[in-house]
Amino acid sequence: MIREYQTKDLDTIMSIWLKGNQQAHPFIDSQFFENNFELVKMLIPASTIFVQDIDGVRGFIGLMDNYISGLFVDEQYRRQHVGKALIAKAKQLHNQLNVLVYKQNTQAIAFYQSQGFQVVDQSLNEETNEPELLMTCIVNHTIKIGKCAL
Rank of each mutant, 00 (worst) to 15 (best):
Leu124Ala: 03
Ile68His: 00
Leu133Met: 12
Ile138Gly: 06
Val82Thr: 11
Val73Met: 06
Ile2His: 03
Phe37Gly: 02
Asp55Tyr: 00
Ile61Leu: 01
Ile138Cys: 11
Leu63Met: 09
Gln113Lys: 15
Lys8Tyr: 04
Ala46Lys: 14
Ala88Tyr: 02
Asn129Glu: 12
Ala90Met: 00
Phe27Thr: 10
Glu127Asn: 09
Leu39Ser: 14
Thr136Tyr: 09
Gly116Arg: 09
Asn105Cys: 07
Gln31Thr: 11
Lys41Pro: 07
Met14Gly: 01
Gly59Met: 10
Asn66Trp: 06
Asp53Arg: 02
Gln52Met: 09
Glu132Phe: 10
Gln80Cys: 03
Thr136His: 02
Phe27Tyr: 13
Ala46His: 15
Pro26Met: 12
Leu86Phe: 01
Ile145Gln: 14
Pro26Asn: 09
Gly59Glu: 10
Ile61Arg: 02
Gln92Tyr: 00
Thr106Ala: 05
Phe117Cys: 12
Ser30Ile: 11
Asn95Asp: 15
Gln23Thr: 07
Ser15Asp: 12
Arg78Tyr: 08
Lys8Phe: 03
Glu132Ile: 06
Gly59Lys: 10
Phe72Asn: 06
Val119Asn: 04
Thr142Trp: 02
Leu86Val: 01
Arg58Ile: 01
Asp9Phe: 07
Asn105Leu: 07
Ser15Cys: 04
Gly146Tyr: 10
Ile61Glu: 00
Leu150Val: 11
Leu133Phe: 14
Asp53Gly: 10
Leu133His: 10
Val119Ala: 09
Ser15Ala: 08
Ile28Tyr: 10
Met14Trp: 02
Thr106Ile: 11
Gly146Ile: 03
His141Tyr: 08
Ser69Met: 04
Asn36Phe: 01
Ser69Leu: 00
Met14Thr: 03
Gln22Tyr: 05
Thr128Trp: 11
Phe111Asp: 10
Leu63Arg: 00
Ile49Phe: 07
Ala85His: 08
Ser15Met: 06
Ala24Trp: 08
Ser30Cys: 07
Thr7Pro: 02
Met14Ala: 01
Phe27Glu: 12
Thr128Leu: 07
Lys147Met: 03
Ile54Ser: 08
Leu39Tyr: 15
Asp121Lys: 08
Ile138Ser: 13
Arg79Ser: 15
Phe111Gln: 11
Asn105Glu: 03
Gln122Arg: 13
Gly59Trp: 07
Val51Met: 05
Lys144Leu: 04
Asn98Val: 11
Phe27Arg: 10
Phe37Pro: 06
Gly146Thr: 07
Leu133Ile: 12
Gln96Met: 10
Ile138His: 14
Phe50Ser: 04
Asp53Pro: 08
Met14His: 01
Leu71Asp: 05
Gln115Gly: 09
Val119Thr: 14
Asp9Gly: 11
Gln92Ile: 04
Gln80Ser: 09
Leu63His: 03
Ser30Val: 13
Asn140Ser: 12
Lys89Asp: 01
